[in-house]
Amino acid sequence: MSAEIVHLDDRLKAERQDFDRIPIVDLSALRSGEDHAEAVSGLRWALANVGFLYVKGHGVSDALVERTFEAARQLFALPDEEKMAIHISKSGEALRGYTEFGGENTNPGITRDLKENFDVGLTYPGLTGPFQGENQWPALPGFRETTEAYLQAMLDTAVLFLEGVALSLDLDRDFFKPKMTQPMMIQRMIHYPSQAGQIDESSIGIGAHTDYGLLTVLAQDNVGGLQVLNRKMQWVEAPPIPGTFVINISDLMQRLTNDTYLANLHRVVNVSGRQRYSLPCFVDCNADAVIEPLPQCIDGDHPSAYGPISAGQNKLNRYAASFAHLN
């Protein structure tokens, strides 16, 4: 580990507060069918005010999460030529595979992302178009089986969470179900090296951005580095909490709720002196699902702020702005 002293630019210093600004919501009651009023109320407050929350009681085993982290560590330890052999550009419109350092920039023109990614997704035989197709797999024993099991666990978690979101909006619990018959879901593995020396916004783990689609389910390792912007325009740490996922809602959810719920800016700055790994699962509905503001989120004081857009087109627009090989 480098002994060089880290000097963070002022804009990269997160506020460390005595209380947790990102709430924790227990999903156990939603899973069990018990009285879920407290969970739904917690979701409503978190999504309207923070856009982020920790969830516990999600039902995913710690053992599966750790196996998936180990698979990610093995993947990123491969020689560059093996990773580039499954580069995302080789997957065509499926847009799945490995992305090298600098190959994706989420805040282009301001920040160069200091990370490498690997993406896989759900497959639907016969379904074609952007974000549809086959996954590319590294030649690592057990990697595919572990990753596919984890992706299924993330789908189950997302469906449960969306049921809670629907209830929080006074909708039928199954409101999202017709939009999730063939959901676009990308399970990503990310590796962030640690930074040292004089650091500013021009090159950090991930530049400030909001996520695409409906929501993101994130497993963090124990390194930390995620920062979320609060209403006072302060960057607030989102430290790892064992046994939880971080869930944040994304652009389409903000569009659907006509800004009632917040897709919040966040970024990653890794100055821990250790390698950081994370497992974000980006959850979208069906590619042809049309998203526009809900009628109950529109009134005289809050006119509709968005027109309709398909989930697939929204995702493609955001990818085109971020991935170098699509330019």
Rank of each mutant, 00 (worst) to 15 (best):
V120T: 14
V65W: 06
G42K: 12
M84S: 05
P138L: 03
V25K: 11
L226P: 05
L265I: 10
Y192P: 04
G103P: 07
R73K: 15
R255T: 07
S272T: 07
E66Q: 15
R67K: 15
G59Y: 12
E15H: 04
H266G: 11
N230V: 05
G59I: 13
F161K: 00
F118M: 02
E34R: 15
L122E: 12
K83D: 10
K177S: 12
C281P: 00
P193G: 12
M184T: 12
I249R: 00
S28N: 09
Q227I: 06
T216F: 10
L53N: 09
S250L: 11
E237Y: 02
S2W: 00
S32Q: 14
S203N: 11
L214A: 09
L47F: 15
T146G: 10
V40E: 02
A149D: 15
A321D: 11
M84H: 03
D172Q: 14
A72Q: 12
K90I: 03
H325E: 02
P178K: 07
F323H: 14
R16A: 11
D200G: 10
Y124D: 10
H325T: 02
R144E: 15
P130R: 08
Y98T: 13
Q136L: 10
A238D: 03
P108V: 09
V269E: 04
I5R: 06
G307S: 07
V165G: 03
G33Y: 08
E93D: 15
R267Y: 11
E104K: 15
L218W: 07
L316Y: 13
E38N: 03
T210D: 04
D26R: 05
R21C: 13
C285Y: 02
G225H: 01
G273H: 08
I199D: 09
D156N: 11
P293Y: 07
Y319L: 12
A166I: 02
H58D: 04
G243A: 01
A208G: 09
E93C: 03
E4P: 00
L64W: 00
F245T: 06
V159M: 07
L27S: 11
T111S: 13
G213T: 04
A305R: 15
L47R: 01
W235T: 07
Q74W: 00
Q227D: 03
P178G: 08
H7K: 14
F143H: 15
G205D: 11
A71E: 09
K56Q: 14
A153S: 13
M189H: 12
G207M: 05
L64A: 08
V25D: 06
R44A: 04
I5E: 14
V268I: 11
A153G: 11
N286V: 04
C297M: 13
L162F: 13
D9R: 00
V120Y: 10
E66K: 04
Q313H: 12
H325S: 00
E34Y: 11
L95R: 13
S322I: 10
N49K: 06
T260H: 02
